[in-house]
Design a binder for these strands. Sequence first.
RNA 1: GCCGGUAUGGUGGAAUUGGUAGACACGAUGGAUUCAAAAUCCAUUGCCGUUAAAAGCGUGUCGGUUCGAGUCCGACUACCGGUACCA
Length: 807
Amino acid sequence: MSEFIPSFEHKKIEKKWQDEWYNFDYFKAIDFSDKEKYYSLVEFPYPSGIGMHIGHIRAYLSLEVISRKRRMEGYNVLFPIGFDAFGLPTENYAIQTQIHPRKITDNNIKIFKKQLKSAGISFDFSRIVDTTDPDYYRWTQWIFLKLYEHNLVFKDKAYVNYCPSCQVILSNEESQGGKCDRCGFDVVQMEKDVWFLKITEYANSLLEGLKDLESNSRIRSEQEKWIGKSVGANLHFPIKDSDKNLEVFTTRPDTIYGATFMVIAPEHPYIKEFKSRIKNLDEIKKYQEQAKHKTEFERLELAKDKTGVKIKGLKAINPISKAEIPIFISDYVMITYGTGAIMAVPAHDTRDYEFAKKYNLDIVEVIKGGNIEKEAYTDTETGELINSPVINGLSVKDAIDKIIKIIKKEKIGEEAIQFRMKDWAFNRQRYWGEPIPIIYCEDCGIVPVPYDDLPVKLPYIEKFTPSSTGESPLANIDEFVNCKCPKCGKDAKRETDTMPQWAGSSWYFLRYMDPTNNKEIASKEKLDYWGKVDWYNGGMEHVTRHLIYSRFWNQFLFDIGVVPNKEPYKKRTAQGMILGADNEKMSKSRGNVVNPMEIIDEYGADTLRTFVLFLSDYEMSTPWNEDGVKGARRFLDKIWRMFPKVNQSTTYTLDLERDIHLTIKGVDEDIENIKFNTAIAKMMELVNLYNKQTEITKADYEVLLKILYPIAPHLCEELWRKLGHKELLVFESYPNYNPKKLVKEEIELVLSINGKVRDKVVVENNLSKDKLKEIALESEKIQGYIKGKEIIKTIVVPNKLVNIVVK
RNA sequence: GCCGGUAUGGUGGAAUUGGUAGACACGAUGGAUUCAAAAUCCAUUGCCGUUAAAAGCGUGUCGGUUCGAGUCCGACUACCGGUACCA
């Protein structure tokens, strides 16, 4: 101990322990171990060329800390990592540089692995999955074929969002606000053959499954809203002088007497169906044409300004009141939601109200309580039905119940449920993705590739630029396109579209359980052993799309008997974003990006880890603050420098005992509640106490190393070894606290007058209320305040305070 | 528009069931050490006030409940995130 280096040499020490951990596979998860299993999952990264972002570090650290702690607690921990490597950025970069995406991806993965290790994250690197590996995407294709087999895949012509800049078809989610998610270019509408996955079939099941997911309310409600369940009724409005009905969906069947007109979407099939009867067909067609060419942006901009055309020659009949009412065509009704037609109740729906005002249509009040001269009255809690013969006087809720009974009896409608969630558009016209395993045969039509022929491998090509027709680059590769029909053997052609980026990530958590299996996605035994993901952490931005897609695939695999659990995740948390020092989102263009590797190089991985966790509440977004890094480093140095004053005693220093037990308890609770910032603050407080002692015991020091280990493992390993231990901290037992040792013998009693603190005295713990009151009145300061005043009342909170109310 | 979240010192942020607001850290100031600096250590650090104290003020704004409110209730403002004519 004589030659002691006053600051820990992070470069040397961190490298030493990383080599030890990774070379000897200390973090390897053991299949079928007798220990209880724990599966911690973090969202696998897209291996971009810039390498790791500070956000990755924060995202992984929560479960990194939990995983290290769980190992100490005796669990067999599966904490895997992989790469979601298909996708546009790599492909665009490939086009730019003429380097093959395979090469780029391999290189990026290599960089990422190295960086993850230099941060000391305790991943099981033996289980890496790479979605672009044919041994992996073979099973992605396999699941697609299974979905196809179970009629959950269909092909349809659809207007799709197309980005002329990326030359790629986008999902609704990727083209929000009419802008391309990737490049920001204006999205245009384009008719295409599109593969869909029928996720809507699982809508209800996905909603129900949320009940079993442990997560905060925000995570749950975003998913709920995305699924968007509405309960109401389908009503049949007869078209006058025909045997057809106009079907509408409504959540407010109680307002049927107030339905003064109907509105159908511009794309509604009845325009064609009744074209011979429509007197102003030209005008209608013109409107349809306009609606089609409105960009998303215009539709949003003009959202308030309703437009539409009355369909002349066509009338609907209100099936309850028998009133004849006009039908309009307007783009405020969407063909993609419900039945593409509505009954408009202007008195009680804001949109219908605006439309009625603009076109001077009747507004009939059927619920009392608002002022329909001014605005639509949409309250459903307090109103009472009027002008509605069969349901007058009822509340909205009762009226809905009663009217549904009536319409069912009269066969003019039925209860119905609608979801806002749409089927999942499942193809891209790009090269760098999983080929869709489908063959087109002139005689046999669409033929799925036989399971034995999987994987359909991506051919190694030189030119990845998409064709100007919007077709995949694969369409130009004859050797890929031309094949034999698996059914009849005749010449046939392959599907050239590839899967969207969400495909590979929809089941990767299953593959980790058995990453090299070449017979199944994973063996039944391993799926059973590892079971559900115990804790899944990732970004808030993936709570809707990725989480729902992957739950959908898992539920499907459960339904066909492939996986043992209907829901894949037990618990889900999400980290907050780290913003730039300027409080703006980090981005290259703003120049506020923090490179974690630079911090590791200068201050070390332990410092980075400690600081990122200390920065703020884990779930909140927060600006980066370079200065704070020094504070974290100082904290670790203090612990390092303390080493020479450690004595050989194996019991806690008496003066520190209570604080040690308190800290163990607090740190444990904080970590489990992902309050890493306060956990670290508590350890800092303990270290400050240690520093005040001239000597500390080996026991004092060891317990600190153990509770700090999950956060700053390199430093703790090194000091642990310096204490003479032969074994690593990895599987040392996590410390327990003794509740009896938490009791304080003396407490500080606060004395206040009228709620204002006037004095503080140290008294024995657990004194009676009367005794505390007595003590309070004895205080000189208190006496000064109550002199000449009347004591109205005294409140005593045992072990806390005495408040005297005077007048 | 609707749905969430947030608002606390110069800064990042703490605060258990309503019970000492500002833990912990950064920064700053003063001092020790040093030839000097860095590092380290000690002290101070919400505002106002004072020689020092006391008193007073203080958790986005306004109001309320309470012996007592950062915390509960009502109204509002700003910022962030989600969503967008969803019938």
